[in-house]
Design a protein around this nucleic acid. Structure first.
Length: 417
DNA sequence: TCTGGGGTCCTAGGACCC
DNA sequence: TCTGGGGTCCTAGGACCC
C-alpha cells in the first residue's frame, strides 16, 4: 500500500502558523511580483477567488471581505516543508518527496489499521508543525492520489484520512472522480476523453489500451494500469535534481542588450549556486527570452538556445561566459523582452567526475566559488556577486511579505519570546 | 497599469551513420 | 519509371504536475 500525504492550503497554512489571528479568516498568497493567486485558505476559496488568476482581478473581493493578502515567502515555506517531511519520514521505510507540500510513503510491511495510521500522521504533523494535512492510502500511487482527494473533499466523513482497500471502494471512487481530476490528465487529455464520451475515471480505466496508448502516449497507459490497481508507477527515490532553473518575469520590458544580459547573468549565478549546493556539475545549459505575451497586438518572439559546454562545470564565471555567448545569438535589437531564464541540465556529480584530457573547468574557480557561497550563506544574501549583476536595480514587488520566522535569527527570537 | 516559477517525461523530425 | 533500411543522437516543443 502507498500513502499520499498532502498539506492543506500549504502556503496559507504556513502564514497562519506564525499569525494565529488569521485563523478563520480568508487568506491568500501571491506569486512573485504579487502577480497571481497561488494559495487560498478554505475561507478564500468560499469567496470564489480562483486559483492562478491575476491578483488585480480579485482586488475588490479582497477589499470587501477583508482578505489577508501575502506575498510569497518561499524561504519560510521551504523550511516548514522540511519539518513536515522529516516527521512523515518516521512513518515509512521509503519516502518520495513529490513537491513542496506532498509526499508518497511506501507502507509495505506495515501491518496496522491504515486508517488509524493515517490519523496518527495527521496528529503528529499538526502537533509538531501546526500544518494541517490530508492522507490518502491505496494499493497504487495513482489510487492513493484519488483517496487523498476523497479525504480532502469529505473531511467530516473521512476525518482527513481515507483508505481504498477493497474493489468496491475502488470502483466507487473511480465512478465519482471526473476525468479532468485524475492525476496526470490535463486539459488536453480531458478534452480528448470527453470527445469519446469518457467523463469519469471509471470510463477511462475501461477504455481499450490501444486507444489510450495512441491518444495519451505511454504515460497515459501507465496511469490507466495504476488506476486499475496494478502497481505501475514506482517510487522515485529522493535524489538530486535533473535540471535546475531560474526564470523570472522582468519588472519592466527590457530592450537593450545590457539590461537583458544583467538579468541572464543574475539568473545564471543563482542557478549555479543551486547546482553547487547539490554537488553537481552541468554539461548543458538553456537560455531563453520571451516577449510580453499579454500584449497581443505586438509581435511575439520566444527564442531559446541550448549550449553544450566543452567541459562539465559549476563555476559561475564559466557558466556566465557561455550564457552570454548564447544570449548574443537570440537577442534582437528593437524587441522588448518581458521574461527570461536559464536552465542547467545534464548533470554529473563532483565525486564521480573524471576530468578530460584537454578541456577542463578552471580548477582555481572551485575555491573561489566555495568562498563566495560561504560568504553569501553567512550573510543570508548576495554580498558577493559579479560586476555585471545589479540586484538593486531589479526589485520584486512584494508589498505583503511576512517575516522569515524560521530562518532569520531576530525573528526566531521574537517568536520564542 | 497589474497577469508566477520550477520541475519531469515523451514524441516528432532532422541530421547523420553504415 | 524505377531509386533501401535501420539505427543513434540531437533538439524543439508539447503535456503534465504542484
Amino acid at each position: 500500500m502507498y500513502a499520499l500525504v498532502d498539506c492543506n492550503d500549504f502556503y496559507a497554512s504556513c502564514e497562519r502558523v506564525f499569525n494565529p489571528s488569521l485563523n478563520g479568516k480568508p487568506v491568500v498568497v501571491l506569486s512573485n511580483n504579487d502577480g497571481c493567486v497561488i494559495a487560498r485558505s478554505s475561507e478564500a476559496k468560499s469567496l470564489g477567488i480562483p486559483m492562478g488568476t491575476p491578483a488585480f482581478e480579485s482586488e475588490s473581493v479582497f477589499r470587501r471581505n477583508d482578505v489577508k493578502v501575502f506575498s510569497a515567502n518561499f524561504p519560510l515555506y521551504g523550511d516548514m516543508s522540511r519539518r513536515v517531511m522529516s516527521l512523515l519520514a518516521n512513518f515509512t521505510p521509503e519516502q518520495e518527496i513529490y513537491s513542496i507540500d506532498e509526499c508518497f510513503l511506501n507502507l509495505e510491511g506495515i501491518n496496522v489499521d491504515l486508517q488509524q495510521y493515517g490519523l496518527q500522521m495527521k496528529s503528529q504533523v499538526e502537533k509538531g508543525t501546526g500544518i494541517p494535512i490530508s492522507i490518502g492510502i491505496a494499493p497504487t500511487k495513482a489510487l492513493a492520489k484519488v483517496a487523498n482527494r476523497i479525504a480532502k473533499k469529505f473531511p467530516r466523513e473521512a476525518g482527513g484520512s481515507y483508505v481504498i482497500d477493497t474493489e468496491e471502494k475502488r470502483i466507487k471512487a473511480l465512478r465519482w472522480l471526473k476525468v479532468e481530476d485524475i492525476w496526470g490528465v490535463g486539459r488536453r487529455n480531458a478534452k480528448k476523453l470527453y470527445a469519446i464520451g469518457a467523463t469519469k475515471a471509471l470510463d477511462f480505466v475501461q477504455l481499450p489500451e490501444s486507444w489510450v496508448l495512441k491518444s495519451m502516449t505511454i504515460t497515459g497507459l501507465h496511469l490507466q494500469k495504476d488506476l486499475k490497481g496494478i502497481p505501475t508507477l514506482e517510487m522515485v527515490p529522493v535524489e538530486k535534481k535533473m535540471s535546475i532553473a531560474t526564470t523570472r518575469t522582468f519588472e519592466t520590458d527590457l530592450r537593450s542588450f545590457d539590461e537583458v544580459r544583467e538579468r541572464i547573468t543574475t539568473f545564471t549565478a543563482m542557478s549555479a549556486e543551486k547546482l553547487r549546493e547539490q554537488r553537481s556539475l552541468c554539461k548543458r545549459m538553456v537560455v531563453f527570452l520571451e516577449t510580453n505575451r499579454f500584449k497581443e497586438t505586438e509581435t511575439q518572439y520566444y527564442p531559446s538556445i541550448q549550449i553544450k559546454l566543452p567541459f562539465p562545470t559549476n563555476s559561475t564565471l564559466e557558466l556566465v561566459k557561455f550564457a552570454n555567448i548564447g544570449l548574443k545569438q537570440i537577442h534582437r535589437k528593437n524587441v522588448y523582452f518581458k521574461r527570461g531564464g536559464v536552465i542547467l541540465t545534464d548533470f554529473v556529480y563532483t565525486n564521480e567526475y573524471q576530468p578530460s584530457l584537454f578541456f577542463n573547468s578552471n580548477p582555481r574557480h572551485k575555491k573561489l566559488m566555495e568562498a563566495i557561497d560561504g560568504l553569501n550563506r553567512k550573510y543570508h544574501k548576495e554580498v558577493i556577486r559579479l560586476a555585471t549583476q545589479d540586484m538593486r536595480k531589479h526589485k520584486m514587488r512584494q508589498e505583503h511579505l511576512s517575516k522569515h520566522f524560521t530562518t532569520d535569527i531576530n525573528e526566531i527570537l521574537t517568536v520564542v519570546l
